[in-house]
Design a protein around this nucleic acid. Structure first.
Length: 449
DNA sequence: GAGTTTGAAACT
DNA sequence: CAGTTTCAAACTC
């Protein structure tokens, strides 16, 4: 019915200096998951202080992580990330912005390492707000004197070092244990939050075999809900008959274990890992595209490009204007893959600024806002930008930029005023680039250098 | 909050 | 592959 939304790339604000807290590059993919930032950092064994982040680049690993995952066969052990042949050359102090889908096709492979080794790394390098994923071992044997770490930085989640935990694999899954609800979702990589052992509230999928951090320090943590933007908070499912092992279950469909859900007879947790793994395998056998974003999938390439619709909707009565419609829910216009009847979810009807739409925590009303009254047809001009520019993904990328900027300010111990200015400047830069991209102009950041 | 509607997923 | 059933969420009252 209509074309794909544009792909927006937020490009560097300037040639970066270490004092510039700006993110360098963020690619916004039309998926509906919050981005993950991998921090690749070189560490000398003697190093004890964390190195300030310097760059954020987009490095979508697209080819082999799924393969790596399927070959991972270690239980209840943390894992090491190793650079495979296809991974870009090891670059110290580089941050890599990934979205969750990138994990499914990364060129990173995994292997087991002693827990103590990982914990040493964590202790050495763990600043606030970051989660070390694992030790990264350079492939070059000549470089054995140094090693590096990969860190996951969830832009919307602040994690105390005391919440730090390790990674274990179980079957084809990798579980990064933290506490609370974490929102990273991908088919085979599930990030979870480990329950505070002191907390009285029990998590329904706690696993006694999991590693705990065992270095619990002062716990100043508040609930995870305090950290997450509402759209990233997991919506508890309410399944009663599917044991949460079918795609009916939103948690399962998103590759997540149930957590604080209201489901009955739930098997979508680490206690039923075997069963869950079988269900995943069965689901994938039925539908290889299961667990992927309903509407989009990434092209099999290392070059970011607009995604292609994976499937269309089949709506008959909702005019594709209710959340029954997966296109509408995914905030994308219906395409020629759709078999919908009486579709009103056209490219013209999807308002670019209507970004407050997300599965959980959003108002259920479909009434229009004043912005909806603005006509949005015809070619883009200075005052009318193309539809779908401000989709959820762009918004997430934008939010990530701002969050990371804020984190940088924090790490640089900047004053409140300076921080605000830096964040505002970053916001201005991002908005400018978004509009430039929307207008089909080559990205430039000269305005803000 | 209960009941209805809806469309995807599962099943036959 | 098409038709039917099941399911859970969206929606309405």
């Amino acid at each position: 019915m209509s074309g794909n939304p544009p792909s927006i790339v937020l490009l560097p604000s300037s040639s970066s200096t270490s004092s510039n807290p700006s993110i360098q590059t963020i690619t916004a993919h039309p998926i509906v998951r919050p981005p993950i930032i991998l921090h690749q950092q070189t560490l000398q064994p003697s190093s004890s202080s964390s190195i300030p982040f310097k760059n954020v680049i987009v490095k979508p690993y697209r080819d082999s992580i799924q393969q790596a995952l399927t070959t991972t066969n270690v239980d209840v052990k943390p894992i090491i990330l190793q650079q495979s042949d296809n991974v870009e050359p090891h670059q110290p102090n580089k941050r890599i912005a990934l979205d969750s889908s990138d994990f499914n096709s990364s060129n990173i492979t995994f292997s087991a390492v002693p827990k103590s080794e990982v914990m040493t790394v964590l202790q050495q390098t763990q600043p606030l707000n970051t989660v070390s994923l694992a030790t990264m071992v350079p492939q070059s044997s000549s470089n054995s004197a140094s090693f590096s770490t990969l860190r996951l930085v969830t832009p919307s989640t602040f994690i105390n070092p005391s919440e730090m935990s390790t990674i274990q694999t179980s079957g084809q899954q990798i579980l990064l244990q933290q506490r609370g609800n974490l929102v990273i979702t991908q088919p085979l990589v599930t990030l979870q939050v480990q329950q505070d052992p002191n907390s009285a509230q029990k998590e329904n999928n706690s696993n006694p075999n999991l590693f705990s951090t065992e270095q619990s320090t002062t716990n100043t943590r508040t609930t995870n809900a305090d950290y997450l933007p509402i759209q990233y908070q997991r919506k508890p499912c309410n399944c009663t008959k599917s044991m949460c092992l079918k795609l009916y279950c939103d948690c399962f469909a998103n590759g997540l274990n149930c957590q604080n859900c209201a489901c009955l007879n739930c098997h979508n947790d680490t206690r039923h890992e075997e069963e869950r793994a079988k269900a995943i395998a069965a689901t994938l056998e039925r539908n290889p595209n299961a667990f992927k974003s309903k509407m989009y999938k990434f092209a099999n390439t290392t070059i970011p490009q607009p995604d292609r619709p994976l499937k269309g909707c089949n709506c008959k009565k909702s005019s594709c204007h209710k959340r029954y419609c997966e296109c509408y829910e995914s905030r994308v216009p219906c395409t020629n893959l759709c078999k919908c009847i009486g579709c009103k979810n056209t490219e013209q009807s999807v308002h670019p600024l209507n970004v407050g739409f997300y599965r959980s925590g959003q108002p259920k009303t479909t009434s229009q806002t004043p912005l909806d009254q603005i006509p949005r047809t015809g070619p883009p001009t200075e005052t009318t930008i193309p539809n779908n520019v401000f989709n959820m993904e762009v918004t997430e990328a934008l939010a990530t930029c701002l969050l990371v900027t804020g984190q940088q300010c924090e790490m640089n111990q900047m004053s409140d005023l300076e921080s605000k200015q830096a964040i505002l400047k970053e916001f201005q830069r991002c908005m400018y680039q978004i509009v430039q991209s929307a207008l089909g102009r080559p990205p430039t950041s000269s305005l803000f250098d």
